[in-house]
Design a protein around this nucleic acid. Structure first.
Lengths: 345, 345
DNA sequence: TTGTAGGCGTTATCAA
DNA sequence: TTGATAACGCCTACAA
């Protein structure tokens, strides 16, 4: 475990450490004579010198590190966002420091603490719940915090999110255009902006057609396959009349719901249409291939990272709020209503 | 952006910085009188003091950070590994510093450089290709490097991998037990240990039954859906006789292959059986649900992280090589051969 | 062009 | 039990 310092490089090159420092710094290396520059360079490579970014960071007040707070690596919709963040950071020579919250507020708070303590240069939070505002605001006193994917009501923090209201609207209009009038929702938690927006947009879309939804479930736990299954079971058991179409707030919920409906003898899309959300990897390979709302998540990740970087350079910048437009992708989990009765209402 | 230092806490508490440091350190806080300890604690909370982990790291020669090198966030099989790593690190108060390679050796080298420069306390590499040995060995001179998921032939580095030979064997025996004798492979790159092992295990399994595979493709690019599709197309077009079963080196390749076969008029599992690998999320929701090899990836991630942590404490520890046992999961993408001709051989 | 000195925030060591 | 001091590795005024 050799650890070569600038000091040793300088000694080998027979110059003062500060000279070595200059010679190695790409920005001011020409303040040094070509001869010594080469001498130092040679010594550095000979010794296998790696500048200690930590020490440099301490000196310069920057760690070259951006905190990223996500719910969970296994949640497929995080993957493209992370990729976008990573790609943008890596171009700038920074690295992401990632923490998971498992959608728990306590963990989020701990994650923020860690990140602040580690002196991340900025933090990108994709896992915010409404109750997390105080913790996030506190962290934002120390360093720039960017809200990504999930937003906070009335926040002044810079935000890069999907336009989830629009997404919900698209879902509703699609179902309406297929003649569905008995519809329900299998949704995410009610304290998460993206789900709140999806729900609002969806209802707005129904309202345009004079429809009121039968029922709207809200996930009590992590909005994954299991929760989708559970909520769909509830729906089937408790609803006064069965819907002909369902809007699931993400593709995983949709997958779980399809299972539950199948077990109840409802086939998708013959008996029940389902719209998912995210267009995550493999959404087109499920059975049936999912009609869903596609999100520019990779792009969102890039934007969030770039925003973070720009905030480092000029801290006073007014906080932008970006909302990226979603897109409907029609596949085979939705179909026109079959029964006349449904059309009549 | 308030930044409170230990110095200011000490001043407010009317003690020397070193005393404040002691009072705040959980390990030696009882070397300090209860009175001053409380005084300092109070001052710290009053000021909202957050210890600067970077400075501490500089002093102690540890950053509390573990580098993790993966191919790509979007590759589903990385997700559970990352989760495992994160969970273990978070328990110990450390954080992962993640870099993507996109399976390119050049990027891997850059990632290692970054991580070494950032003085990660250790690095977990899950993206190794055979040609990366020099770069990885170099990094290992500076800090502990753990090989995870993918191994390196003849390496002395600590390794936590799946027993992919066994996995290939399980796949072969399963197909043989269903009566298949004309089989082929849609595999990953030939310079990646996991794929090499899967291939070797698979052939060994065939050999037991006296079978030689028709053909074995090797992915030229990232082993994802598209590559699976491409390789399966090649197989259909170029093979002298069509196989009745295929072993895909991961579930994504399998998904792509199923598409290609479907386009060629071959239905799975009626005309062709397919075994995948990984049992990634949603493997059971594909159409058809995938017969595959399940890997304890979360566990692997945990082990890798714990190994890294243990190596920090006692650097001289002999390097263990762990191989975790895979498990066959039978679903509906495999079925007995239909034709007598196939059984005869 | 190069050397000197001081400090980024902590903590380990030594002395009181 | 507490205080003083130095050092972790680097960078940057400033002086020479």
């Amino acid at each position: 475990m050799a650890k070569v310092t600038l000091f040793e490089v300088a000694k080998l090159a027979n110059v003062h450490p500060s000279t070595a420092s200059r010679a190695l710094s790409p920005t001011i290396s020409r303040e040094v004579s070509e001869a010594t520059r080469l001498k130092v360079l040679e010594a550095a490579t000979a010794l296998g010198y790696r500048p200690n970014v930590v020490a440099r960071g301490l000196r310069q007040g920057r760690t070259g590190t951006i905190g990223v707070v996500i719910t969970d690596f296994e949640h497929l919709y995080n993957a493209p966002v992370l990729r976008g963040v990573e790609v943008s950071l890596e171009e700038a020579g920074l690295m992401p420091l990632v923490a998971e919250t498992h959608d728990s507020s306590k963990r989020l708070e701990r994650a923020l603490d860690h990140l602040v303590g580690r002196r991340a240069d900025a933090i990108i939070v994709t896992a915010a719940r409404f109750g997390d505002e105080p913790a996030i605001t506190k962290a934002a006193q120390f360093l720039p915090v960017i809200l990504a994917v999930r937003t906070l009501p009335g926040t002044r923090l810079p935000t890069v999110a999907h336009d989830d209201f629009e997404g919900g609207l698209l879902a509703a209009r699609h179902l309406v255009s297929l003649g569905h009038r008995r519809v329900a929702e299998i949704g995410g938690a009610r304290d998460v902006s993206s789900f709140v927006q999806r729900r609002a947009g969806f209802r707005a879309g129904l309202k345009e057609a004079g429809i009121v939804e039968l029922r709207s479930e809200g996930a009590a736990r992590v909005p994954g396959i299991e929760e989708g299954y559970r909520l769909a079971c509830e729906l089937v058991e408790e609803a006064a009349e069965l819907p002909t179409a369902v809007f699931a707030h993400n593709d995983l919920l949709a997958a779980g719901a399809i299972d539950a409906f199948a077990e109840a003898g409802l086939r998708c899309p013959d008996d029940i249409s389902i719209v998912g959300y995210d267009d995550m990897v493999l959404a087109d390979h499920l059975s049936p291939p999912l009609t869903t709302i596609r999100l520019p998540s990779f792009h969102l990740g890039r934007l969030a990272a770039e925003l973070a970087l720009s905030l480092l350079d000029k801290p006073g910048t007014p906080a932008p709020r970006v909302a990226l437009p979603p897109e409907l992708v029609v596949r085979r989990s939705t179909a026109p209503v079959r029964t006349v009765e449904a059309r009549v209402g």
